[in-house]
């Protein structure tokens, strides 16, 4: 996370939402696709270790970050998630050898699509979190939560007659 602020300065908020528009009681809702072997176990450890992070985090256990199709990432946004976190094993540690490499390519495409239609790509976050990195997990979610507070509610999930 240390270098994540560097990239953020270059990109402007593209989806037009700002934290200022958010209702007072609004908390960013995060859907997390967590891989069974690393990130989910890391999240589990964070819970056991009583680390604090946003209660609006909705974990979905998947077998591999590489199994998360873009359709489900987009569905999460359309169903009201303000941010989507994908957690996978560190590169080289994938239980299925290379699923996380594929996830990385897929995320690169989705981020471009999001930017191309005017949805801020920072709403999608990919992180490698191992089973022992409960601290990294809690910190990732908290920092992501902070980013989303700046971005405001997801405009794609607004109530509107499309």
């Amino acid at each position: 996370m240390a270098d994540s602020s560097k990239g953020k300065e270059k990109k402007k908020t593209t989806d037009g939402a700002t934290g200022g528009d958010a209702p007072k009681d609004w908390n960013p809702r995060i859907v997390g696709f967590l891989c069974n072997w690393c990130s989910y176990t890391g999240a589990d450890l964070a819970g056991v270790s009583r680390l604090q992070y946003t209660p609006e985090f909705i974990p979905i256990r998947v077998m591999c970050s590489g199994s998360v199709d873009v359709a489900y990432i987009l569905k999460a946004f359309l169903e009201g998630a303000d941010g989507v976190l994908i957690g996978g094993c560190h590169l080289g540690d994938c239980h299925y050898l290379n699923g996380n490499y594929k996830a990385r390519r897929r995320v690169a495409v989705v981020k471009e699509v999001m930017e191309g239609v005017g949805l801020d790509p920072r709403r999608l976050h990919l992180e490698w979190i191992s089973a022992s990195e409960s601290g990294k997990f809690a910190k990732t979610v908290s920092t992501f939560d902070e980013t989303l507070r700046q971005l405001g509610p997801n405009p794609l999930a607004k109530e509107r007659l499309l």
Binding site: M1, D3, S4, G7, K8, L91, Y101, R104, R105, V107, A108, K111, R122, H125, L126, E127, W128, T140
Partner: peptide
Amino acid sequence: SEHENFEVVGD
């Protein structure tokens, strides 16, 4: 490729 980097991790 192992060495590719799309700068999408942690961003």
